[in-house]
Amino acid sequence: MARHGRIAAGAALLLAAAAAFVLPDWIISLATIAFANGLVVLGLIVLWRAGLVSFGQALYYCIGAYAVALVGRATGVTDAFLLMLIGGAAAGLVAFVVGFLLARYREIFFAMLSLALSMILYGVLVKAESLGSTDGFSVASPTFFGYAPHQEKLLMALYWLVLAVCAIAAFLIDAYFRSVSGALAMPVRDNEIRVEFLGMSVSRLIHTKLVISGLLAGMGGALAAFAIGHVDPNMSYWTTSGEFVFITILSGAGSVVSAFVGSLAFESLRSFAFAMLPQLWQMLLGSVLLLTILFLPQGLGSLVTRLRWRRKAAAP
């Protein structure tokens, strides 16, 4: 991100934080979930830049969410920061372990194997009576370093927490994209042989991306668990992964901010469609996805770039 880009992002962040004072609750809660999901999308963008599409990101999302719920239930810990870190770490650890396997795969084989792994978790959770099987179970309201807000206060605290996490994640991932490890994503997609003969291990590069995306998805799942107040096996079903992929396509891999813009657009679209045309929600989704792939292969983010380019071309 160029300097003016960072300033713009910082201003947008402040604006979003301040908006909590004026916007109605339902918008705040929609934005909380949207930004939590945006973290998962950010992880998918990390993978996508290297040409990898994971149809199983719900695995890490669900692990993050269940880790929060389970640890909370077993130990009585309610601290949001601690639980969130536990959720992220659990998912990151799983990503690290399955990464040894997944890093060997590319293209649709990668997509299918990640899907299979997430479906394994789904299969386990659905049959696990002690975890509430298909119904899942509730998550206790989080506290923030001992501060235990209720209702609107809780809503706002959670919203700010999610905003802060997203801002930190966006900043770090932006730096990662410029690092040797992160910036080699496109080279890896283009030509693995050359990367190997430059002396870099492609599978290690990909493994790193897997762990990063797993961490992000786990944190997203943990925050979503707080926001929804409930976890259930559908969080790991393949349609959940499909939704994340959908948002990623919608956002484009252009910049870290696009993950959150895309996610917000998606959640808004969803609540609009649920209110106006509940029977046509999936049709709407499918059509948008189709049109995006056909006409905006770089995602919604590319619209901005195109406009800027046009303006530049128009300038003397």
Partner: peptide, 13 residues
């Protein structure tokens, strides 16, 4: 630097 951490903090450019 030839290690993971090095690859993460060294900018490409």
């Amino acid at each position: 630097p030839k290690n993971l951490l090095g690859h993460l903090y060294t900018p490409l450019r």
